[in-house]
Design a protein around this nucleic acid. Sequence first.
RNA 1: GCCGGUGUAGCUCAGUCGGUAGAGCAACGCAUUCGUAAUGCGUGGGUCGGCGGUUCGAAUCCGUCCACCGGCACCA
Length: 637
Amino acid sequence: MPIISLPDGSKKEFSEPITGSAVAESIGSGLAKAAVAIRINGVLRDLTTHIEDDVDIEIVTRTTDEGLEVLRHDAAHAMAEAVKELYPDTQVTIGPAIQDGFYYDFARNETFTPEDMELIEKRMRKIVERDEKITREVWARAQAIEFFKGQGEIYKAKIIADIPEDEDVTVYKQGEFVDLCRGPHLPSTGRLGKAFKLTKLAGAYWRGDSSNEMLQRIYGTAWANDKDLKQYLHRVEEAERRDHRQMGRQMNLFHFQDEAVGAIFWHPKGWTLFQTLVDYMRQRQNIAGYQEVNTPELMDRSLWETSGHWDTFGENMFTSLTEDNRVWAIKPMNCPGHVQVFKKNLRSYRELPLRLAEFGKVHRYEPSGALHGLMRVRAFTQDDAHIFCTEDQITAETGAVCSLLLEIYRDMGFEDVAIKFADRPQRRVGEDQVWDRAENALLKAMDSLNLDYTHNPGEGAFYGPKIEFVLRDAIGRDWQCGTLQVDLNLPARLGATYIGEDGKRHTPVLLHRAIFGSLERFIGILLEHYAGNLPFWLAPQQVMVATITSDADQYALEVAQQFQNAGLRTETDLRNEKINYKVREHSLTKTPVIIALGKREVENHTVSIRRLGKKGQKVVPLTEAIATLSKESRPHT
RNA sequence: GCCGGUGUAGCUCAGUCGGUAGAGCAACGCAUUCGUAAUGCGUGGGUCGGCGGUUCGAAUCCGUCCACCGGCACCA
């Protein structure tokens, strides 16, 4: 006689054991239709589960995050079933739900083609039409292994062998298809609906390990209904439209070419943007007590051996062998250089914290497959700084870096910043006790600053734990940009010391920190965040003075000159073209302000201001325009 | 680095069965002086990613290398 409590506190009593579906039906047919799973005493279960005891339940519907996860997991199963029907010699491995969709990894000798993908999707739709019952069974481990081996499913057998002894091995059946799975699943394949689509074909290593064989992964997206699917596809298109590589071409900012793979040719406008960011950061850092330095691009290999970079990343460093038989490494980081500057003078504890900053251009031989526009390159510029301090100063310095960083992100238009704590990685230098100290010091600093953070295990740098600062952009994507690392290893390895109050030599703590991270990448992020429509103060070309007729040419040159004198990045367009044509062209290159000048403006000494993305225009006296725009051109700090 | 896809004019793209390579935009020239997202007419522009092979003949078929795109792995 189960008594079932609903989330709103109401109770329902049933005279006999009942399934989740029936409970949903008893509440309402609409709910029953939308239901994909049931939460019983906090645990997500199949709708087909029989409820015999008194329980708290919640019906999970297809539009909720959890419901979508179930739906997408079902889509993965339907895809696997389709693949097994069409290509019986294929082994299925794993197929989880992911953000916005699902994938399944297959092992098969032949490769899947885009045409296969269409066939598979068609077959999935047939499987949905067949509306096969999905049933759950608990199997004995040995029996399960035997079964899947018998089916030629070696990967599945391996997965079962890895399931902890105390966990049940559950399998789900739909039609002829039997899959090892934790569940939960829908009652039948028909409930999946039609709002899914296979999206891409890719390789993926078995168990995510590049020393293993590569499987074939098929990705798909699945939604509660057609409307949501359409909306998602539209969102993807929008994201493509704001691709920074596209913006770079449209706005004439930079280009790449085969002779310099992973390196950027900055055009005048792109470089102007770059310099605007550098100028801004330089100013902020000066105020925050940093001193700027510059260190060599090339340093003898031995220095990198001492620092530990050679052992850890030697294969990813560019080197140059010279006539005198010396091997030079092109710097992949600035820290060893900064330590040399620190070491050159005898340092006193009174000088600490000493903050050395450098807009250092570094080179790293990134794997070819990792390269991606401005986001991942082989030559980039860091807004790097190293803070030499005592252990007692770690907290205060961490606090200062955090507030500086958050202010700067806000200026750039990012309000939403997440913080992660990354601790010791597998591959590292230094004793475990040193790592304990470094991690504890950083955690203590974060706690005493009341920072909200999540844990990112094993993701620290090879010389120390780090804080990662992750910002969220206008379309909800996360970008890890800033970082702060506590390093108790490199200063000792590179022999940095200072004289303490006690008159003895001590090894300083080294805090590595960057705010933009890579200037190049940050520009990519800005371009995508703003879809090219940069705020006025950042826009490389702020004002275009365009004439309506040639009568205004003289005045236009005068106006442009005055804008330039006021520090506004201004160009003129005196071409013999219609104003419509000019407006369109300069709008496409994302110029924030177009000043159109005709007879009327010449006569009245006014200008007509048109803002990017806005319909009309405003006619104001020239002096007023200059005042307004100059004010806007300052970083709003 | 690995898997799959793509590579044709400055840009976006078409090119059937192997038979002398096309469009729109841009550029250049001429006309037009125009009031806020494309004025008209004309002209020039190609190592069809590189190299090799098959063929009487290759943008097209085969091999190989390179780059890019989407993933995987990597990311000091």
